[in-house]
């Protein structure tokens, strides 16, 4: 993973790991998106099939994935599916996002966070930078340990 950029927390508590400006268009539901062709921001609910977006990734600048509870891990798979399909726009985790979930979320490809309760920036920095290496290849471009072992 890239070393975490300094958190750009804006007034809404949005944490972003991107250099581009936040996308302004409000996100529409998956059903609404699939029914209209000109939207550029989509919101995926936990039970939605993220694969339905794959034919349209070129036109999307923001995908917001809902976490109704931190225990509901479906959004991690949705994020990876989109990144694996080549999506490189903003991928935002929204909802019950806690500081200890930021690292696995980053590894699954999320690059912005809209937590319901504010996340302390220093704690977030510490938890995101604690691990230097990871066993698995994931969606964050990190070189897995097995690759480092064998070149």
């Amino acid at each position: 993973m890239d070393k975490p950029m300094s958190l750009s927390a804006n007034a809404d508590g949005l944490l972003r790991y991107r250099d581009d400006a936040p996308h302004e268009e409000p996100a529409v539901t998956l059903d609404a998106f699939l029914g209209q062709t000109n939207a550029t921001a989509v919101r995926i609910e936990a039970g939605d099939d993220a694969r339905a977006l794959i034919p349209h990734l070129g036109q999307i600048a923001l995908v917001e994935i809902s976490f109704p509870s931190f225990r509901d891990g479906r959004g991690y798979s949705a994020a990876r599916i989109l990144r694996e399909a080549g999506y490189d726009g903003e991928l935002r985790a929204q909802g019950d996002v806690l500081v200890d979930q930021l690292l696995p979320m980053r590894r699954c490809g999320f690059d912005s966070f809209a937590p319901e309760s504010e996340i302390d920036a220093a704690t977030a920095e510490a938890s995101l930078s604690r691990y230097e290496n990871f066993y698995q290849k994931a969606a964050d471009g990190v070189v897995p340990i097995w690759k480092k072992r064998h070149g």
């Binding site: 891990g73 991690y76 699954c108 990871f134 698995q136």
Partner: peptide, 14 residues
């Protein structure tokens, strides 16, 4: 063991 340790996608399974 290594693959499953801190697997980012499968940390909040059902």
């Amino acid at each position: 063991r290594q693959w499953s340790s801190f697997h980012p996608e499968f940390t909040y399974l059902p």
